[in-house]
Simulated assay, not measured.
Amino acid sequence: MAAQYKNKSIAEQNSVDLAWQLLMSDEYEELRSCIYCNPSELRRFRQMVVNIVMATDIADKEINGLRKERWNKAFAEQAPGNDIRNAKATIVMEHLIQASDVSHCMQHWHIYRKWNEMFFQECMEAYQSGRSDEDPSKGWYQGEIGFFDFYIIPLAKKLKECGVFGVSSDEYLNYALENRREWEKKGKEIVAANREKIQAALDGSQSISNTEMPIRETPMKKSQEWNAARQQTQAIVPEEDGLDESFRSETLAL
């Protein structure tokens, strides 16, 4: 799968592939007629879907840099025309899905703790089963602080700036700031406790590595199937609309 997507936004591109293939199936013909009426609307809709899903890949510096440029340009205009309004709509939707992707960080401390621990457990099991080379507990505490400082809190401030959520945006920002403060005080003890609990559970279960190891091989074994699905998806879309280009080309073109 990594080779298929040239090691760029692998999970995100695969998600778009599968979702687009499903949307283009016969059973969703009526839904498609409600979404778009002509090739131009279809192209715009696909671009929007690609942009929004690709926005969840926060590790791609190139795409993130372009997104920041579009945000600054869209919200720097005092009297926006149609083009600026469309740009604002696109960039706001990208940030909405980014917020949805990490929404637990902007909710109550107990919600944040719950999902943080579940993700930590997933990473620890991957490490213990040999699917990851790094022990996540070594950098988890400091990593969360950096995540709040350089991603969560700036994102919450942008949600407030765009005004989409109204007064609720203050709540999201306040929760993010409070969770950051709580994590700074309690995070080290939480990581240590979670590691001990997960390690004890792993030591008592002989089936974890046996059940999870095949996942490591699945993407490579199924790469031809994913590629066939992607080709089928692209074949459905009219070539004159330029939708047979790569996802990154579609994203960077907007």
Rank of each mutant, 00 (worst) to 15 (best):
G143T: 06
K114L: 13
P154H: 04
H110W: 04
M118W: 05
A126S: 15
K88V: 06
S132N: 11
I153Q: 14
K68N: 11
I84C: 15
P136D: 02
E134K: 15
W71K: 09
D135L: 08
I97N: 01
I153V: 15
G146E: 01
I152R: 14
P136T: 04
W140I: 02
H110Q: 14
Q142Y: 00
Q78I: 12
S129H: 08
A89K: 11
M93E: 13
F120C: 07
S132T: 04
E94V: 04
E122Q: 11
P154L: 02
E77H: 12
Y151G: 01
A74V: 11
E144W: 07
K157M: 07
R113N: 08
L96V: 05
N82D: 14
Q142T: 04
F75A: 04
P154K: 02
S129Q: 01
P154N: 03
N82S: 07
R70H: 02
D149H: 07
V102E: 04
I153K: 14
N116L: 10
H95I: 09
H110I: 09
E122A: 12
R67K: 05
G130R: 10
H95D: 14
R67F: 01
A99V: 00
N82L: 11
F148W: 03
T90D: 09
R113E: 15
N72H: 14
G139I: 05
A126C: 12
S103G: 05
